[in-house]
Amino acid sequence: MKTTRHCFALDLKNNPELIAEYKEYHSAGNVWPEVIKSIKVSGIVDLQIYLVENRMFMIMEVDETFDAEKKAAMDANNPKVQEWEDLMWTFQQALPWAKKGEKWIPMEKVFQL
């Protein structure tokens, strides 16, 4: 199976209590099952989020069935995923250069060994 990697960045609000709560929501077994299912059925085979201070990096490995527009449409029509996204937005803040409504911003690969 061939996979493709996508990397994104987003900030959390710079508040230690909110960051701790965000991390707790993302600890093993705490992400809502409907969200996990939505990720898996869309062709995402691995998804990891890394954090430094309040900046997050998401690394997403997708298979050949993944379609970003289809995933966005599926999520928009899934009330539980929308509830999760609304809840997560209470912890997150857009990057300074993000356009209105943008959340996770795609990153440019600048080096590979």
Rank of each mutant, 00 (worst) to 15 (best):
T65N: 14
V110E: 05
R5P: 03
E83T: 10
I39L: 06
K23N: 01
A94R: 13
G101R: 10
V52W: 09
L87T: 14
M58N: 05
D75S: 04
A20N: 09
K37A: 14
L95W: 02
L113E: 10
S38D: 09
A76V: 03
V62H: 06
A76P: 02
M58P: 02
L47H: 03
Y50T: 01
E69W: 09
M107I: 02
P79A: 06
K2T: 13
V35G: 05
P106Q: 06
F91R: 00
V110I: 15
E108K: 15
P79H: 11
Q82W: 09
S27D: 03
M56A: 05
M74K: 11
M107Q: 10
F8W: 14
G101W: 11
V41Q: 15
M88D: 02
H26Q: 07
A68R: 13
A68M: 12
V31Y: 00
K103Y: 05
A68E: 12
K37W: 09
S27E: 06
L12M: 13
Y25W: 12
I39N: 03
G101T: 09
P16L: 08
N15R: 05
A76R: 07
R5W: 09
P96H: 07
T65R: 15
E21T: 00
A98P: 04
W84V: 01
P106Y: 05
K70M: 06
M74I: 02
L113Y: 14
N77C: 07
P79M: 06
P33C: 04
Q82Y: 08
V62A: 14
K80F: 07
L113R: 10
F57G: 02
E64Y: 12
E53C: 08
